[in-house]
């Protein structure tokens, strides 16, 4: 994921919780040539709606147009571009590390603890850990554990809430 010229932009928006809405959102991105870096979707307290958080690698002009295009969708209730300084962003990573070597196992546990991660599963060959953090922290963590050997991994994509009184 390295080599990015600018920080990712993140938008959060509320959509109708109906079949086909995720398709329409992703279809819009495909059609207009916007590249999604990550997307996270989940229910909110009002079951009629769902909240989506999308991160993209885009310049300001593209980003503004993307927000306008999404806002125009009938199924999008409201949308906001998130200010990174006023937003808490988190991502969850599940990662399985190859730890046949006792030294590797020790290193793995240390990195996981440093990142306040949880060990979820462990056997003779592997450790599975759950790590959460800001996306950059996860990138950093993965950089550290790469030498140990990543068997497989899955990231949820960025989810975010604004601080204090701010809200969508």
């Amino acid at each position: 994921m390295g080599g990015r010229l600018m920080p990712l932009s993140t938008v959060a928006f509320l959509v109708e919780n109906q079949p086909g809405v995720l398709f329409k959102v992703s279809n819009l991105f495909r059609r207009r040539g916007f590249n999604i870096e990550s997307i996270a979707v989940g229910a909110v307290e009002d079951t009629r709606y769902a909240r989506m958080t999308i991160s993209v690698d885009a310049d300001t002009k593209t980003m503004n147009n993307m927000v306008d295009q999404l806002d125009k969708m009938v199924e999008v209730i409201k949308i906001k571009r998130l200010d990174p300084l006023r937003t808490i962003m988190r991502e969850l990573l599940l990662v399985k590390l190859s730890t046949n070597d006792p030294m590797a196992r020790e290193d793995a546990l240390r990195y996981i603890n440093n990142q306040h991660g949880l060990v979820l599963d462990i056997d003779e060959e592997n450790i599975m850990a759950e790590v959460t953090g800001e996306p950059g922290e996860l990138d950093q963590f993965l950089e550290y554990v790469k030498s140990i050997g990543i068997v497989e991994m899955s990231r949820t994509g960025i989810t975010a809430l604004e601080k204090g009184r701010l809200q969508l």
């Binding site: 503004n64 147009n65 306008d68 295009q69 806002d71 125009k72």
Partner: peptide, 8 residues
């Protein structure tokens, strides 16, 4: 009338 046409 369409905000998304502005500066597109």
């Amino acid at each position: 009338i369409d905000q998304s046409e502005i500066d597109k």
